[in-house]
């Protein structure tokens, strides 16, 4: 009761404290704590088997944690809390559709489960760009189309908190960008979004905060920019190989390290401004690329392993 008051006060949509879930010997979720404020876009990142889905499903109230507490909109989601259900929207990682129904019928059926009318279902089809597939049966949709339909089904009752488990998996670049727009628009309306992804670049663009997860634990949790900055990694300036002599590169002001491979010559620097202006002076900016550290580097740094989506 006490924490209920606190959570309602500080506007936290989700508060998770030290949840654990083991399957036999495997600690799928191994002491996860996090809190997501109302209106926040929160991402959980990590490789396969990190425990993202399990964490999300515990918060949604689909699974019972072995220990730890979850507060969702100030209430406990477990055991099944029907007061919460209309306020949350869930897209499960594996799409869940009624057999032999068309896209429109899927949406109408899910809408009716929340007491929402059919008009809203049609709106949702437009929103995810499936209007022309309205009368196609679920099993005749492509992977990406199924994914979009599944997201539309999660949105149909306009929930306050949205859980999306790898919503952009299987989407082509165009559909992915469209979905980003949809998600941003939802966030702008004050909704909270928790989502998982394998795309670190995407999380960097979309999320207010991310948690990087591996082997059931959260390794780091912050704003993407802060995580990257905290890494304090050098900037990489890349030139086409042969366009600039290596000894000259090593002599540039601010150049810490120079390496070469088949295609390119890469200068590592902590003073990119100096390096770039020196290169500009020598007219060597053609085909130049600047790469700053990303979440992938953060992941590499945290786990000692290369990130493989």
């Amino acid at each position: 009761m006490f924490s209920h008051v606190i959570n309602a006060g500080n506007g936290a949509a989700v508060v998770v404290e030290d949840i654990r879930k083991a399957y036999g010997d495997l600690n799928a979720v191994d002491g996860v704590s996090l809190s997501v404020s109302e209106g926040e876009f929160f991402g959980i990142l990590g490789p396969n088997g990190a425990g993202k889905t399990t964490t999300l499903e515990i918060i949604e109230g689909l699974r019972e944690p072995d220990s730890g507490t979850v507060r969702l909109l100030g209430e406990s989601p477990w055991p099944r809390n029907s007061a919460l259900l209309p306020r949350i929207g869930v897209q499960l990682q594996a799409s869940s559709f009624f057999e032999k129904l068309t896209a429109r019928e899927q949406l109408e059926t899910f809408a009716s489960l929340y007491g929402v009318g059919a008009a809203r279902a049609a709106e949702m089809l437009d929103l995810v760009g499936l209007a022309d597939k309205a009368d196609t049966r679920e099993d005749k949709l492509s992977g990406g189309q199924r994914q979009r339909l599944s997201i539309a089904c999660a949105l149909v009752h306009d929930p306050d908190v949205l859980f999306l488990d790898e919503p952009t998996a299987a989407l082509d670049p165009q559909a992915r960008r469209n979905l980003w727009d949809v998600l941003r628009a939802i966030q702008e309306r004050g909704k909270t979004i928790l989502y998982t992804t394998h795309y670190l670049d995407e999380a960097e663009i979309l999320c207010d905060r991310v948690a990087i997860m591996d082997r059931g634990r959260i390794l780091a949790m912050d704003r993407p920019a802060a995580l990257v900055r905290g890494l304090d990694a050098p900037t990489q300036v890349r030139l086409e190989r042969g366009s600039f002599p290596r000894p000259d590169a090593e002599a540039l002001p601010g150049a810490d390290q120079v390496s070469e491979d088949e295609q390119s010559l890469t200068i590592s620097t902590r003073r990119p401004a100096d390096v770039l202006s020196a290169l500009a002076d020598r007219g060597a900016l053609d085909g130049l690329q600047v790469r700053t550290a990303t979440l992938e580097d953060v992941f590499l740094d945290l786990t000692g392993r290369e990130y493989r989506a």
Binding site: I88, S95, S96, F98, E99, Y114
Partner: peptide
């Protein structure tokens, strides 16, 4: 069986039904 296998039952369980 089909609704359980295709996770429809889980999904329904997340709706106020």
């Amino acid at each position: 069986v089909n609704w359980r296998k295709k996770q429809v039952l889980r999904r329904i369980r997340l709706a106020p039904v």
